[in-house]
Structure formats: C-alpha cells, structure tokens
C-alpha cells in the first residue's frame, strides 16, 4: 500500500498515464480509499487544464509593431 506522500509524488505520472499497470493500480487503490489524495489528484489535473486553457497575456503593442516593422524590412526568402 502506497503512503499519501508516495501517491502525491506519482500524481503527475498517474494523470499522464505514464505509470506501468501495477503502479497505476496501486495509485488507484489508494485514491479509492483516501479522499485527500483523491482530492489532490483531481486538483492537479484541474491545475493542468487551467494552465492549458489560460488565455495568453496580450503583447505590448509597441513590441508587436516593432517586430512587424523588422518583418517588412526582411521579408522571407522565396
């Protein structure tokens, strides 16, 4: 039986399905019985989904314009 601390260390690999069959089963058994670890794993998954869906910060307009200006001066080679 894994300890909570061990489950937490494997949580990312569990979510990414990178654990072997046996490793995966051990985590599943633990989180089926431990509400704290279950919560931790769910929250880690939610964190990942939030990071992925976070809208990009807008770029300062002068940065973009400056880059586009240099783009105009150096158009791609055909």
């Amino acid at each position: 039986m894994l300890s909570c601390e061990e489950v937490v260390e494997r949580a990312s690999e569990y979510l990414d399905r990178d654990l072997g069959r046996w490793g995966r089963l051990k985590v599943r058994l633990h989180i089926a019985m431990c509400k704290h670890c279950n919560r931790y794993v769910l929250q880690l998954g939610l964190t990942t989904r939030l990071v992925r869906s976070r809208p990009a910060d807008p770029l300062a307009p002068h940065v973009e314009d400056q880059l586009i200006e240099s783009f105009r001066q150096a158009p791609p080679e055909a």
Binding site: A11, S12, E13, Y40, Q43, L46, T47, T48, L50, V51
Partner: peptide, 17 residues
Amino acid sequence: QRVLLHRARARLRQALE
C-alpha cells in the same frame, strides 16, 4: 523532464490553493 513537470504542476496547484 518528468520531475520538472511534476514539480511545476505541484507548485501551480499550491498557488491555486
């Protein structure tokens, strides 16, 4: 790579907590 990814996620989870 795996360790860095896991630590990063754990820190971000903590930030949300």
